[in-house]
Design a protein around this nucleic acid. Structure first.
Lengths: 351, 351
DNA sequence: TTGAAAGCGCTAACAT
DNA sequence: ATGTTAGCGCTTTCAA
């Protein structure tokens, strides 16, 4: 690979002039510019960005730490972040943690050593152990948290209003006549999960329906957990007439469990979930879902981060962006709870 | 951020000694090592990987160029590549092209300027215009092509045996009594697509079924195209009794079209597709699919690439790895073509 | 075993 | 407008 020196020699100019031609940071006479350009194309010269990074002390790289890109919620978010990053000439480096805190710590350390200019972080469940994040910020690397929020940390963040989304969803189920609504949730250590649970409780409470702890089942945000917890609920003495899954994978698990038990959706059990799938409408049952603006979360997160990096956003107070969820009602929740069915399964109509 | 110099000063040793402690590349006496370690933790020193990269002329970064991470086939592949990369201490930088050739060229140029050590590439449709890839390789950056193969380029590659996968799938449909099988395919400019088409034709031919060009519909690998092309086929005079979708998104489009026309799957029209979805078994109808080892493609691709980079793999001849697809038969293809139905739609049983 | 110093390829300050 | 040069933070020879 040719260096700036070789280009300079071939064009019979100084390296400074070549640099000026390449970066346009200072005027160069047409004659010399011509010669430089010719040498560049002749030598197939590509500036060494590593050397530049060392000199100007910025890599124009952003770290993106997600739990698992194979979870269909994240690719959209990553695309949003990538589009914003590239439009500002940053490169996005995405790494998965699988929600392991130790891995997250290690990755943050790698990103520091790599001197990324900033980090977009989807936190792992952490029990308040956030010193690694604090240290990263203290080392001068701005961090913007996406999707999940750190209860005990003052940091910029972009996320959906999860309480509200869950409220909308559960209110809808109640309006369809369901009073016995099971919820399957990921780790309530994640504020995402606890907020959705709170929304569920709010909606029930405002409708005067007492909270039944038996209807609340906690696992992780994977399909398998959704399947297992749903099965537990559907086989319990007081079978719920509706299931609220707190993310898409758990929702699919609920569908699988429902099917496997020979129950019809929505006639026997209604299902609604947090997160919509891009492919949802192509599949049966058409699932009622709370759509999150995943792309926007990524995009706005990256914009905010870049604002911090470049100083256009300043101020000590953390910036909190809450995006609006959208309820998409589809057939999976459209069967109303029928007293007859409730009677059959021995569950008396409540309220 | 502390530098190696500050650590050296604080530990009262030379920078060379600090370097040796950090990298372990030369022995250091316990006494000095101790002092250095203390200074490092005291200053929260993180070596500057950018400076190291400049000096040793390797970034330990791999570029991963995919068409679109929101296509559910790719996240698994990326995970495979990431796992392999991280285990060898490489960082994976993933970028989307949306199958735009111009964008691919631009990204390859960015990756060169960034001095990545190697590139994993899922090519865009290119009409044989591969000089940008050739140039990248000529510049000393090894490239391994994944999933899609360059007909006119001698380069390492890892992909599924697409001909075979399509053959398996179509043979299965034939064995279920289908002789009038429609195929919806992405751009046949991609060898991936043309190979699957070839497999389709092979299976028909070996069964003595003549190829009907009317049953072959070409679009791109997106859901919308799958939907549109399927609708066209299902509304045509000779409605096929089975649909073979050449990727998952097109398959979902086919499901949507089938539903929308009030046709039952598999009773009215059987559906089978290339690519399995991790979430497939949670959804109705359960789709018969040719599963590709996406994770393996990514993993083995990265291993091969790293082998090239580090010289453990050499030899001028390109290495071609073909992985075996696996047919997963599910309910969407289990209805056999009934003569009665064929009669209804005016299609006489053939063969 | 340790220290001193050159140099990776670039930018930017300074001199001309 | 152009050339010269110091220096970004590290690794690695070479000498001691």
């Amino acid at each position: 690979m040719a260096t700036i020196k070789e280009v300079a020699r071939q064009a019979k100019v100084s390296v400074g002039t070549v640099s000026n031609v390449v970066s346009g940071s200072a005027p160069v006479s047409p004659k010399l510019r011509e010669r430089v350009l010719k040498a560049i194309s002749h030598l197939d010269y590509q500036p060494n960005h590593v050397a530049r990074s060392l000199k100007v002390r910025q890599t124009r790289m952003l770290g993106m730490v997600v739990s698992d890109i194979t979870n269909p919620f994240f690719p959209q978010m990553v695309r949003g972040a990538e589009d914003a990053a590239l439009s500002h000439n940053y490169l996005l480096v995405t790494i998965n943690t699988d929600d392991h805190l130790e891995r997250e710590k290690q990755i943050l350390s790698v990103l520091r050593t790599r001197r990324v200019d900033g980090i977009l972080l989807v936190m792992s469940p952490n029990d308040g152990d956030v010193t690694h994040i604090r240290n990263t910020i203290a080392a001068g690397i701005p961090v913007v948290c996406l999707d999940r929020l750190p209860p005990s940390l003052s940091v910029d963040s972009v996320a959906t209003d999860n309480v509200k989304g869950a409220e909308m969803c559960v209110r809808h189920l109640i309006s369809m006549g369901h009073l016995h609504i099971g919820i399957i949730t990921g780790s309530v250590k994640l504020q995402t999960a606890s907020d959705r649970l709170k929304g569920y409780e709010n909606a029930l409470t405002e409708a005067g329906v007492p909270i039944d702890r038996n209807l609340i089942r906690e696992g992780d945000f994977r399909l398998e957990a959704g399947y297992r917890l749903s099965k537990g609920l559907l086989l319990s003495a007081k079978r719920p007439s509706a299931l609220f899954a707190t993310n898409a994978l758990m929702g699919l698990g609920a569908v699988k469990a429902t099917e496997e038990l020979g129950l019809r959706c929505p006639q026997d059990v209604a299902i609604a979930m947090f997160d919509d799938l891009p492919i949802a409408e192509a599949l049966r049952p058409h699932l009622t879902a709370v759509a999150q603006p995943a792309y926007s979360i990524g995009f706005q997160g990256a914009e905010l981060l870049i604002g911090r990096i470049e100083g256009s956003v300043n101020g000590k107070k953390p910036i909190t962006i809450r995006l609006e969820p959208e309820l998409r009602v589809r057939e999976s929740s459209l069967g109303s709870a029928s007293p007859a069915r409730l009677f059959e399964t021995g569950v008396p109509a409540q309220g």
